[in-house]
Computed example of a mutant assay.
Amino acid sequence: MADRLDTPKEDRRVWRPRLDPDFIGRGAEAFARFMGTGTFLLYMTGFVIVWVAINAVALFGLRWDPYPFILLNLFFSVQASYAAPLILLAQNRQDDRDRVALEHDRQRAARSLADTEFLAREMAGLRIALGEVATRDFVRSELRNLLEELTPEREDERAG
C-alpha cells in the first residue's frame, strides 16, 4: 500500500518506550500527598527505631551500621534529595491547576457581569416602555375617580 499524503507518518523509532508525560507528575503528587500524612511519619519513625535498635544493640546478631549510623544518614540524605524536587513538582502542578481554575473563574465572572449589565439595560428599557402604558393600578384609580364623579349625579337625580 502506498504512503498517503493526508496522514502523518508513524515514528519508526520503536526502541524508545512511550511514557505518559504526566506519569512522573502524578507520581510526584501521590508521593507528596503520602509524605504529608501521619501514616508516613509513623512508618518512618518505626523504621528509624527498628534500624537503631538492631544496629545499636546488635539484635539478632546483625550490625551493619554502627553507632554514628552513617548509612542511615545517607538514606535520609538520598530521600531528602528526591523528596524536595518531587514535592516542588507537585506544587508546580497544583499552581498550574489553580491558575487555570482562577482564569475560568475570571471568565465566568466577566460573563456574569456582562449578563447582569445586559439584563439591567433590558429592565431599564422595559420600564421606559411601560411608563407609556397604562398599568392595572392606574386604570383602577381612573375608574374610581369616574365612579366618584358619577355617584353625586345619581343622588341629585333621585332627590329631584
Results as ranks from 00 to 15, higher is better:
1 M>N: 01
3 D>T: 06
6 D>F: 11
6 D>R: 05
9 K>P: 00
9 K>W: 04
16 R>T: 09
17 P>L: 01
21 P>K: 04
21 P>T: 03
21 P>G: 02
22 D>K: 08
23 F>I: 10
27 G>E: 06
28 A>C: 15
28 A>H: 03
30 A>G: 06
30 A>V: 07
35 M>R: 13
37 T>W: 04
38 G>D: 09
40 F>K: 03
45 T>V: 02
47 F>I: 01
47 F>V: 03
47 F>G: 05
48 V>C: 11
48 V>S: 11
49 I>P: 06
49 I>W: 13
49 I>A: 13
51 W>G: 04
53 A>G: 08
54 I>S: 02
55 N>Q: 10
58 A>E: 13
58 A>G: 05
60 F>R: 05
62 L>R: 14
65 D>L: 08
67 Y>C: 06
69 F>L: 15
70 I>P: 00
71 L>T: 03
75 F>T: 06
76 F>W: 09
77 S>W: 02
80 A>D: 00
81 S>G: 03
82 Y>L: 07
85 P>L: 12
86 L>P: 04
87 I>V: 15
90 A>Y: 01
90 A>H: 04
90 A>L: 03
90 A>T: 03
93 R>P: 00
95 D>F: 08
96 D>I: 02
97 R>T: 08
97 R>N: 09
98 D>V: 13
98 D>L: 11
100 V>G: 02
101 A>H: 06
101 A>V: 07
102 L>E: 13
105 D>C: 12
108 R>A: 15
108 R>L: 13
110 A>N: 08
110 A>Y: 10
112 S>D: 07
112 S>F: 03
112 S>R: 15
115 D>V: 00
116 T>V: 07
116 T>S: 10
116 T>R: 12
118 F>W: 13
128 I>W: 00
129 A>K: 11
132 E>L: 06
134 A>Y: 03
138 F>T: 14
139 V>F: 06
139 V>L: 13
139 V>C: 10
140 R>V: 04
144 R>C: 03
146 L>Y: 14
147 L>H: 12
147 L>Q: 14
152 P>Q: 14
154 R>T: 08
154 R>M: 07
155 E>Q: 14
156 D>S: 06
157 E>M: 09
159 A>T: 11
159 A>C: 05
